[in-house]
Simulated assay, not measured.
Amino acid sequence: MRNIKLIIEYDGSKYSGWQRLKNSDQTIQGKLESVISEMVSSPVEIIGSGRTDAGVHARGQVANFKTNSTMPIKDIHKYINHYLPQDIVVKKVIEVSERFHSRYNAKSKKYTYYIWNHWIPSPFQRKYSYHFIETLDIGLMEEASKKLVGTHDFIGFSSVKKTNKSTIRTIEEITIIKEGNMLKFSFIGDGFLYNMIRIIMGSLIEIGIREKEIFYIDEILKTKTRSIAGKTLPPHGLFLEEVYY
């Protein structure tokens, strides 16, 4: 049995997220499984490194599947990209150890949230960044973001309902880069809760426009209360950049 690893890039604009749904094939996983199952003439389950939500994009999603097919790697790569829709591309196809598991072996992930920070919108960035008109104080946002680095219970920054699963996560690094009117907020961590980055971004924006003080972050972490955190920013500004193993 061969184990095939894929590195995938996709525009999530019109999809219902990564995870296959029972009543719809409008998912990234569903599209990949349909093409690959046809290729090897048998049902195939794709294992992803994690779920991306509806409207979220990826430059470095990782997945793997197992097959008895003897098709050469190069031919597998050509076939998949030929039959996938144009907004999903497999960048690399690699044969790996049978023990490799794209989700369980992942050590950390990098996500980036993009904000187009100018009063004039960009027709070219509108699908891939959040347009925010007001001036943001990047220095304040950087200081606030430092409070999020480390191991914390992030349930106040998530849309997770009551759960028996741990909501403790570790953020290793947060960086903010300004390139012209584009702001890039990158997060590296061992995992992220449902809507966690988008809620963190909504909270950081409130600090960036000086509606909230920096200690606002401490308050959310301490109280673990979603209702006092910022709004959930739209999904189209969020990209899964890379998965680390």
Rank of each mutant, 00 (worst) to 15 (best):
N3W: 05
Y15A: 05
W18I: 02
Q19E: 13
Q19K: 11
R20N: 12
K22A: 14
D25V: 02
T27F: 12
G30L: 05
S37A: 13
P43H: 14
P43Q: 14
I46M: 14
I46C: 04
I47C: 04
I47P: 00
I47T: 13
G48D: 02
S49K: 01
D53W: 10
G55I: 11
H57Y: 14
A58V: 09
V62H: 05
I73M: 05
I73F: 01
K74I: 08
Y79S: 03
V90I: 15
V90Q: 12
E95L: 08
S108H: 07
I115A: 07
H118E: 09
S122P: 04
S129V: 02
Y130S: 03
L136K: 08
I138R: 08
E142I: 10
K146M: 12
G150L: 07
F154R: 02
G156A: 04
S159A: 14
T163R: 13
K165T: 10
T175A: 05
K178C: 03
F187T: 01
G191K: 03
L193C: 08
R198S: 01
S203G: 09
I205C: 07
G208C: 04
E213M: 08
E213G: 04
F215D: 15
I217K: 01
K222Q: 12
T223H: 05
T223Y: 03
G230S: 02
E242D: 12
Y244V: 02
